[in-house]
Amino acid sequence: MTTKTLARAQDNTVLSIALAAMLGFGLLFVAGYAQAAMLHDAAHDQRHAMAFPCH
């Protein structure tokens, strides 16, 4: 199991997919999730329009 997991983790494809997904989550965190006041105000209209839970 460990060897198998390790072998898969070393696979370039899986790493690339994971990287793209993590970057995607990062952008979404900033655009829709983070509650810092400045960020919230700047993203306000977009969050409402996209129905992110806003405040």
């Binding site: 997904a21 700047a42 993203a43």
Partner: peptide, 11 residues
Amino acid sequence: FNMLGYAGFGL
């Protein structure tokens, strides 16, 4: 922020 959000969804 729309471009940012959609880029996140796009990824």
